[in-house]
Amino acid sequence: MNLKEVLEKTEARMITGESETDRECRGFYVSDLLSDVMGNAGEGEVWLTIQTHSNVVAVALLLNLAAVLFTAGAEPDATTIEKARAEGVVLLATALPTFEAAGRLYRALMEEK
């Protein structure tokens, strides 16, 4: 699945990384605890979270995540967006609750297999 499909499935919009819609995502990780993500999310995955502060970008960058998808209407502040742009981290946002967004992505992933 690529980011374009992630955007479609979750009715999300792109905040940064507009040219990266073809980027492949290898899986998904859902968590709002940064150390949990640090220890368990894999390279190339999309991270679903409601945490929006700039340290989210640092985590995404260090793990080489495909993108961060803010769920439940969570909106990153200007500092987070600026940092993501500077570092080439893709940020997406959806109004869907985390469960709904993750559920749709899971279903799509299973249909793909």
């Binding site: 605890l33 150390s35 220890g39």
Partner: peptide
């Protein structure tokens, strides 16, 4: 509240 303090830092 920021998602730190999970008690996983040193174990990681």
């Amino acid at each position: 509240e920021m998602g730190f303090g999970a008690g996983m830092g040193l174990p990681n």
